[in-house]
Write a protein that binds this DNA or RNA. Structure first.
Lengths: 156, 156
DNA sequence: TGCGATTTAATCGCGCGCGATTTATTTTCA
DNA sequence: TGAAAATAAATCGCGCGCGATTAAATCGCA
């Protein structure tokens, strides 16, 4: 260190078009707008669709367990799951082994919805205009970014 | 076409971990959580920060004009900008040339906030744990994805 | 010129995300 | 054993996003 402030945080004007965070933010908006008409037909919102995906992969999970996979907590999930329950897609039952936990199970109607959902991924892939290989690489990069951000937030 | 249904939409079970949309969604959540404590000190939310960025680049824009850059509309922006106005960061004035438009201008306090904001980008870059080159490439890919999705939504 | 079409912002309701707090249950260990 | 700590879900308030609608100003053009 031959200069003072060698470790000072560099100061530059933040610009929308050069920030990755805005690219991610606006891509999220774009995905939502793509999914909206598709999921409307199934009576789901996008976050509700995510919860259903997790349950289709493994039925009967607790709220925290769902939250670990979705990076959400009970303050978001509880009302969301209650809406899925009101729609007849899931049931909410207290775990008899541990009364603190609420187990979320698919109803027959909830399992049935997977049939309709199974044609969603191909529609979305088509809309991106990218190859499956490109999408896979991009997914890996964005997932890596996410995990890096999460690590930084956790250690702070 | 030697078979029936050659153009049928392929049906596969949607899985959370292999979907790019969830990677984007969860990276957005992670960015928000990273920005929260940083922006809290400036008294801004992340979407408010985006609006300020656009104004720091060019002061005195209409609501729709801001919306075009942010991919948002007046139903989102009007209340957001009113909160920025209440915080003393911007003014809202009807354009005398076209009374339909509301021009949003930075106040002295709003311009002053750029000084604090100028150390945000470097902090965020550091948190990603990625090089500036990597971030640039990823930003370009995600922007391309976003624009592809937007094109697909528009033509639908 | 005047009237319908267009543009712009604002308003309203709903469903997230999330910080903060509360309640109920289980675990820990003195 | 029993009280404190930890864990799980729920509740509450606020700020987005956004579909739908409304109100006001401007434009187009017959």
């Amino acid at each position: 260190m031959t200069k003072r402030n060698a470790n000072a945080i560099p100061r530059i004007q933040p610009k929308l078009e050069q920030s990755l965070c805005f690219a991610i933010y606006s891509a999220g908006l774009a995905f939502n707008r793509l999914y909206k008409p598709i999921l409307d037909e199934m009576g789901l919102t996008y976050p509700q669709y995510l919860v259903m995906m997790v349950l289709w992969e493994r039925d009967g999970q607790g709220v925290s367990e769902l939250g670990e996979q979705l990076f959400l907590e009970s303050n978001t999930l509880t009302p969301l799951i209650k809406r899925l329950e009101a729609a007849g897609l899931v049931t909410r039952t207290r775990d008899t082994e541990d009364e603190r936990q609420v187990l979320v199970h698919l109803t027959a109607q909830g399992r049935e919805l997977l049939k309709e959902a199974s044609c969603v991924p191909a529609q979305v892939v088509a809309a991106t205009g990218m190859s499956v290989e490109q999408l896979g690489k991009l997914k890996a990069s964005v997932t890596g970014l996410r995990d890096g951000l999460r690590a930084a937030v956790d250690e702070a």
